[in-house]
């Protein structure tokens, strides 16, 4: 099951050979089966997705704060107008965007380098173990990553500060330093996700047809020529999908920041998901924070659409090549 293009194209050619549409009775039976099989998923979907979403939409039109007495009050679009004028939230959205651009750029470039390195060394002894060590950071829950890095970044006994002193600088409290907290979070995020982009790079390189690579070798193409004419045309979709997945993930980044800096010092590392969490569970303003959640929901839906658009482009192109 290594390549998805070949078997599906075989299947589609076979389907064309299948004669005669089914008679009406068989068709109604098919409809019965098609929806019957979906019932369990639909039950879970309605219970655990549709209802919470409607609930959230509804809440966003109410003035509802857990800490104050009194019933929730319907206030129409007021939460949204308040949201539109909320400077700090737009600041953290902007900060999230900055973080996204930096993180995705760093991780894509370094991930490509690391991925290429492992692709070149596909015969190194213990490659599987080496890849396991490389991939472990991305498989950890961000919460534990934050925790592990706190041990290393500790201002008093942290091992990072030991190295800082070794090179002749003074100890730094990274997570509370106004200028260094943001880069510190960026570094830990990159530590987690460079391996992911390396994985995507490996997949992209693996999707380059072997014959084309060999032809390039026979023609004695330079590294850059091979990259531009052979590798990128075949591998670009997977890399773009990787970049999109990372972009989506930045909007979700919360646990890591929450644990490392709690959004501070001040609001220096407050990404949008952290801001949302603080709004909901520190100030307990449920109506207002639901309005922000709805906004993030729309961002997520937009990003999902882009993701699927690229995914469809890829499978269409694969079908054409098959």
């Amino acid at each position: 099951m290594s390549s998805s293009s070949a078997p599906s194209s075989v299947a589609s050619r076979l389907e064309e050979g299948i004669p005669a549409p089914a008679p009406p009775r068989a068709k109604s039976k098919k409809t019965w089966w098609s929806w019957g099989l979906l019932v369990p998923v639909l039950v879970f979907f309605i219970l655990m997705n549709v209802i919470p979403t409607i609930w959230m939409l509804g809440l966003s039109f109410y003035n509802y704060t857990l800490t104050s007495a009194g019933d929730p009050q319907f206030i129409g679009m007021d939460n949204y107008t308040q949201l539109a004028g909320a400077g700090p939230l737009w600041l953290s959205l902007g900060r999230t965007f900055t973080f996204m651009v930096l993180a995705v750029a760093i991780q894509t470039v370094l991930g490509a380098v690391v991925g290429y390195l492992f692709w070149k060394s596909n015969k190194v002894p213990g490659r599987r173990l080496a890849l396991t060590l490389l991939f472990t950071p991305m498989i950890l829950t961000p919460l534990s990553s934050g925790l592990f890095w706190r041990l290393m970044l500790d201002p008093v006994f942290g091992v990072i500060n030991y190295f800082v002193e070794l090179v002749g600088l003074e100890k730094i409290d990274f997570t509370t330093d106004a200028t260094l907290a943001f880069p510190a979070v960026l570094v830990v995020d990159s530590w987690m996700w460079i391996p992911f982009m390396a994985l995507m790079t490996l997949a992209a390189l693996g999707s380059v047809p072997k014959a084309e690579l060999e032809a390039a070798q026979v023609d004695n193409l330079s590294f850059w020529q091979r990259l531009v004419h052979v590798i990128i045309p075949a591998g670009k979709f997977i890399i773009i999908l990787g970049i999109l997945l990372r972009t989506i993930d930045v909007f979700k980044t919360m646990d890591l920041v929450y644990l490392m800096t709690n959004g501070g010092p001040g609001d220096r590392t407050e990404l949008i998901a952290v801001a949302l969490y603080r709004l909901a569970f520190k100030s307990f303003n449920l109506g207002y924070s639901s309005a922000l959640a709805v906004l993030l929901l729309f961002i997520a839906i937009a990003l999902t659409s882009i993701y699927l658009f690229v995914l469809n482009l890829r499978s269409r192109r694969e079908a054409e090549n098959a």
Binding site: N49, L286, S290, A293, L297, A300, T304, L308
Partner: peptide, 22 residues
């Protein structure tokens, strides 16, 4: 299929409130 995928792409914090109340 699109809706299913998008549920995994929403920040978890967005859905915590309705789930908390439900």
């Amino acid at each position: 299929m699109f809706l299913l995928l998008s549920t995994r792409f929403v920040p978890a914090a967005a859905f915590v409130i309705p789930f908390f109340q439900l």
